[in-house]
Amino acid sequence: MSTGNRPLSPHLQIYKPQITSVLSILHRMTGVGLAVGALMLVYWLNAAAYGPEAFERAQSFLAHWFGRLLLFGWTWALFFHLCNGIRHMFWDAGLGLELPQVRATGWFVYIASIVLTFLAWAAGYGMLGGS
């Protein structure tokens, strides 16, 4: 097909970031980030299959500050992708497509993802007895 020399739309940097565009790219970025997190899940499950020592190593890596930082990021990414994914399903059903609604649900999803992340981590630290 002849596609040469067609005009291109302006580059992304031209536009002022808006809640709509930022959440759109965040949905993709959290998706890719979660794919990396899925690799960690596979490693963790296989460590458990390999034996107690291997599982202990996996657990101590995740308990390390760097492991916790990764888990915290994946927790937020999962909550965000989950909440924004539900937002996408409402759009698929033809609901909430007016711009003011799109902006409102966008901010709601963003704030909900942060609140849920902190709630999950508070519960997690509760399991550890605060250590």
């Binding site: 202990e56 657990q59 999962l78 989950l82 399903m89 999950a120 399991m127």
Partner: peptide, 25 residues
């Protein structure tokens, strides 16, 4: 798959929280 993952991932997060710091046993 997204519809399936709504309940499954909520269950997974809940489980992951209850499994914090667990040993293999």
């Amino acid at each position: 798959t997204a519809v399936a993952l709504i309940p499954l991932s909520i269950w997974f997060i809940y489980s992951a929280v209850t499994l914090v710091g667990i040993d293999r046993a």
